[in-house]
């Protein structure tokens, strides 16, 4: 079930293509010259959508505007006291209107795997297929008080349904529904995002969806505030509430402090301090988040 080798290969490939891409970006190639302003495509979230890392935003991935099709790829690593996380994915931004994305999440249980009787280093894997439709507004232009608004669906399929069921989840698959509003308040160099999410997911879905006792959708909230230091650099904070469905393990909210830097037009690197709270009875899962995004 765990596939660490192909993943490493993909991350290495991504890093390699970044190196390849930078000289081309410097030449301002007309073909791959997406028309978006730097950073206004956001950075990939752990669910593969465009956003701020943990929170999904109303932005559309890729660097193309309403006259083009943008592409985006990312790889993310999170290092926690008791767990390791990697995710990677691809995303297409159609005419800055529709975003279609795929992400693969791999959650390494390390020693906890032994404690839970799964075996040392047992990997929980999940695929996330998402679609986002931009409904109204523009993150930069137009009325300064009208945000860009987008609605999304995120269909999540755990590859470890037996584990999810064993910890008490009702399902190994689930679908989240999001509604996001994002605006760059230029007069203060501040970007604000708020997202409402209907979800049943336990730990984002890695521990399945719902539970015997609680199998209805709950309304959760994601908020991000970011300050633009320069055209290329932004720092920010995010908060994301989560349901707490499982009887055997308490689940809390997530938050992070992040810094993103557009190294070139095409390559954005994000580093963050993340607090993922208690995961499967192991508390204080705070650590480092590192992500690279290549976008056209």
């Amino acid at each position: 079930m765990d596939q660490p080798l192909p993943l490493r290969g993909l991350l290495a490939g991504l890093a390699f293509s970044c190196v390849l891409a930078s000289p081309a970006a410097a030449q301002e190639s007309a073909l791959l010259d997406g028309g978006k302003l730097l950073l206004t495509n956001g950075v990939a979230t752990i669910e593969g959508t465009s956003g701020g890392g943990l929170a999904t935003w109303a932005t559309i991935s890729g660097r193309e505007t309403d006259v083009g099709v943008g592409l985006s790829a990312h790889g993310t690593i999170i290092e926690l006291p008791d767990y390791g996380w990697t995710s990677y994915g691809l995303s297409v931004g159609l005419f800055d209107r529709v975003e279609l994305s795929y992400a693969r999440q791999n959650f390494d249980t390390r020693d906890v795997g032994t404690a839970l009787g799964l075996g040392e280093g047992y990997m929980l894997n999940q695929d996330v297929f998402a679609a986002t439709l931009r409904i109204a507004g523009d993150v930069v232009y137009g009325n300064p008080l009208v945000p860009q608004i987008a609605a999304g669906v995120q269909h999540k399929r755990s590859s470890d349904t037996p584990v999810a069921l064993a910890v008490g989840a009702a399902n190994g698959q689930g679908t989240d529904f999001t509604l996001s509003a994002t605006k760059l308040f230029l007069s203060h160099s501040v970007l604000v995002n708020t997202t409402a999410r209907l979800t049943k997911a336990n730990q984002g879905g890695l521990l399945g969806f719902g539970s015997a006792g609680e199998n209805s959708y709950s309304l959760q909230f994601e908020g991000s505030v970011a300050y633009q230091l320069s055209r290329r650099a932004v720092i920010g904070a995010e908060y994301r509430t989560k349901p707490d469905n499982l009887a055997i393990a308490r689940e809390g909210d997530w938050w992070d402090l992040f810094a993103a830097y557009a190294v070139t037009k095409n390559l954005t690197v994000t580093a963050a301090y993340v607090d993922l709270g208690s995961i499967a009875t192991f508390d204080n899962q705070r650590g480092g988040f590192l992500s690279a995004q290549l976008a056209f």
């Binding site: 028309g35 978006k36 302003l37 505007t65 309403d66 006259v67 083009g68 800055d96 232009y141």
Partner: peptide
Amino acid sequence: VRTRDMNALVE
């Protein structure tokens, strides 16, 4: 003028 032209001018 298209959005991408506007972005170019802004840059």
